[in-house]
Computed example of a mutant assay.
Amino acid sequence: TNTTTPSQPRIVAEKKEGNVGEEQEDNDDDFFTDIYHSPKLFKLNFEEMENKFKIYIYPDGDPKTFYQTPRKLTGKYASEGYFFQNIRESRFRTEDPDQAHLFFIPISCHKMRGKGTSYENMTIIVQNYLDGLIAKYPYWNRTLGADHFFVTCHDVGVRATEGVPFLVKNAIRVVCSPSYDVGFIPHKDVALPQVLQPFALPAGGNDVENRTSLGFWAGHRNSKIRVILARVWENDTELDISNNRISRATGHLVYQKRFYRTKFCICPGGSQVNSARITDSIHYGCVPVILSNYYDLPFNDILDWQKFAVILRESDVYQLKQILKSISHEEFVSLHNNLVKVQKHFQWNTPPVKFDAFHMVIYELWLRHHVIKY
Rank of each mutant, 00 (worst) to 15 (best):
S7H: 11
Q8I: 13
R10D: 14
A13W: 03
K16M: 08
E17N: 11
E17V: 12
G18K: 11
V20W: 14
G21T: 07
N27D: 14
N27Y: 03
F31T: 02
F31I: 02
H37I: 06
S38Y: 15
S38K: 14
P39I: 02
L41V: 14
L41Y: 11
L41M: 10
K43R: 15
F53W: 00
P63T: 01
P70A: 02
L73R: 04
G75H: 08
Y77N: 12
S79I: 01
S79A: 13
E80I: 01
Y82H: 13
Q85S: 12
F92E: 01
E95Y: 03
D96P: 04
Q99T: 01
A100C: 03
H101F: 06
F103N: 00
M112R: 08
G114C: 08
K115A: 15
Y119N: 13
L130S: 00
G132L: 06
Y137P: 00
P138D: 09
N141M: 13
L144I: 02
A146V: 04
F150W: 13
C153M: 08
H154Q: 10
R159F: 07
V168E: 10
K169H: 09
K169Q: 15
K169D: 12
N170V: 00
N170E: 05
I172M: 07
I172E: 02
V174A: 02
C176D: 04
G183F: 06
D189E: 09
L192S: 06
V195W: 05
P202A: 12
A203S: 15
N206R: 15
N222I: 13
N222W: 10
I225P: 00
A230T: 11
E234C: 08
E238T: 07
S242T: 07
I246A: 06
I246S: 10
L253V: 08
Y255T: 01
F264S: 03
I266K: 03
Q272A: 15
D280I: 03
D280R: 06
I282M: 10
H283T: 06
C286L: 12
C286S: 15
I290T: 00
S292C: 13
Y294P: 00
Y295A: 05
D296M: 05
D296S: 09
D296N: 13
L297E: 04
Q306Y: 11
F308G: 02
A309P: 01
L324Q: 07
S328L: 07
E330N: 09
L339G: 08
V342W: 01
V342M: 05
H345T: 07
Q347A: 07
K354T: 15
D356Q: 09
A357L: 05
H359C: 07
H359P: 03
E364F: 04
K373N: 10
